[in-house]
């Protein structure tokens, strides 16, 4: 019994941790973002070569992105701008999160991804259990 309660508490903890991670990472919005992009409008033939340094490219990409965003519907514009701002802030604002950072290992976000991964695993295990349990009852 004690073991069962322990397992339930651990699983509840994982679920709560996972839900917090899910929200923290903006998981849903980022997962479905691709379905909001009008691929035809954004498609331009050719992939320009000669982009070398990270900084140079990312600044150009930002202008590219702004152009294509302008063609999209209003709410998509808003959403993309928000996430863009958020990312630029992340990249530039906190120097240590940039690619040129001196600190090489930074696992904070990875832990949030782990939380979401565990959430889906635990969710599936229990859905599966409930399903087999119901089948047996029938």
């Amino acid at each position: 019994m004690a073991k069962k309660i322990g397992i339930i508490i651990i699983n509840l903890g994982i679920v709560i941790w996972g839900i917090i991670g899910f929200n923290h990472l903006n998981y849903w919005e980022r997962s479905v973002r691709i379905f909001h992009v009008n691929s035809e409008q954004n498609f331009r033939p050719g992939f320009d070569p000669g982009r070398s340094s990270f900084d140079e490219r990312s600044s150009r990409n930002r202008t590219n992105r702004t152009k294509s965003i302008a063609q999209q519907s209003a709410d998509v514009v808003q959403r993309n701008r928000e996430s863009l701002r958020e990312r630029n802030f992340e990249d530039r604002g906190h120097g240590r999160r940039g690619f040129h950072s001196r600190q090489k290992i930074q696992l904070r976000n990875v832990v949030w991804f782990l939380a979401v991964f565990c959430l889906f695993t635990v969710g599936t295990i229990y859905t599966d259990k409930i399903r087999t349990f119901r089948k047996k009852e029938k």
């Binding site: 479905v32 691709i34 992009v37 498609f43 050719g46 992939f47 590219n64 992105r65 294509s68």
Partner: peptide
């Protein structure tokens, strides 16, 4: 020479 805009592939990569 994969074609397509950087933004499209970027969003595709994330999603």
């Amino acid at each position: 020479n994969l074609g397509g805009s950087h933004m499209f592939w970027r969003v595709m990569h994330t999603s």
